[in-house]
Computed example of a mutant assay.
Amino acid sequence: MGSRGTDAGGGDGEQKTSWPEVVGWVTLNAAFKINDDRPDVSTAFYMIPTPLPTDYDAQRVIIVCDDREVVVRTPVIG
């Protein structure tokens, strides 16, 4: 019943919306993983303590990293 991009979840037709497995990864590697799972979204990088966007964007995954460019929070759609 899927149209495009429905293979990124666990096989139940739902698309992945968070990536807890990439916490601790270098941001670029995390972005590659996210793009592999969901090529239909873009990634946005924010270094702590930069404020995060307050608007919701279903086509954006927010990646929060520290000063070593390591992911410190679970990236999520938004």
Rank of each mutant, 00 (worst) to 15 (best):
W25A: 05
W25D: 06
W25Q: 04
W25T: 04
W25Y: 15
W25H: 05
W25I: 04
W25C: 01
W25E: 00
V26S: 08
V26F: 13
T27W: 09
T27E: 07
T27N: 08
L28T: 13
L28C: 13
L28H: 13
L28Y: 14
N29L: 12
N29C: 11
N29Y: 12
A30G: 02
A31F: 08
A31V: 10
A31W: 05
A31D: 05
F32T: 14
F32I: 14
K33F: 11
K33G: 09
I34L: 07
I34K: 02
I34S: 03
I34Q: 06
N35W: 10
N35Q: 14
N35H: 14
N35Y: 13
N35M: 10
D36E: 15
D36M: 10
D36W: 08
D37I: 08
D37F: 05
D37G: 09
D37V: 10
R38M: 06
R38Y: 02
R38H: 07
R38K: 09
R38L: 02
D40M: 10
D40P: 11
D40G: 10
D40Q: 14
V41R: 01
V41E: 04
V41L: 08
V41C: 06
V41T: 07
S42G: 13
S42Y: 10
S42D: 13
S42M: 13
S42T: 12
S42H: 11
S42N: 13
S42A: 11
S42R: 14
T43R: 07
T43D: 03
T43F: 06
A44N: 08
A44M: 09
A44R: 07
F45E: 05
F45G: 06
F45Y: 09
F45L: 08
Y46T: 01
Y46L: 00
Y46Q: 02
Y46H: 03
Y46I: 06
M47D: 02
M47I: 09
M47V: 09
M47F: 07
I48F: 11
I48L: 12
I48H: 12
I48T: 14
I48R: 12
P49I: 05
P49N: 02
P49W: 04
P49F: 01
P49E: 02
T50Q: 15
T50W: 11
T50V: 11
P51N: 07
P51Q: 08
P51E: 08
P51C: 06
L52F: 00
L52G: 00
L52V: 01
L52K: 01
P53V: 01
P53W: 00
P53R: 04
T54G: 13
T54W: 09
T54L: 14
T54F: 11
T54D: 11
T54Y: 10
D55P: 14
D55V: 14
D55G: 15
D55S: 15
Y56H: 06
Y56A: 04
Y56E: 07
D57N: 10
A58N: 12
A58C: 10
Q59E: 15
Q59S: 13
Q59N: 13
Q59Y: 12
V61K: 02
V61A: 01
I62Q: 00
I62W: 01
I62S: 00
I62D: 03
I62K: 03
I62G: 00
I63K: 01
I63D: 05
I63N: 02
I63V: 04
I63C: 03
I63S: 00
V64E: 04
V64I: 06
V64G: 00
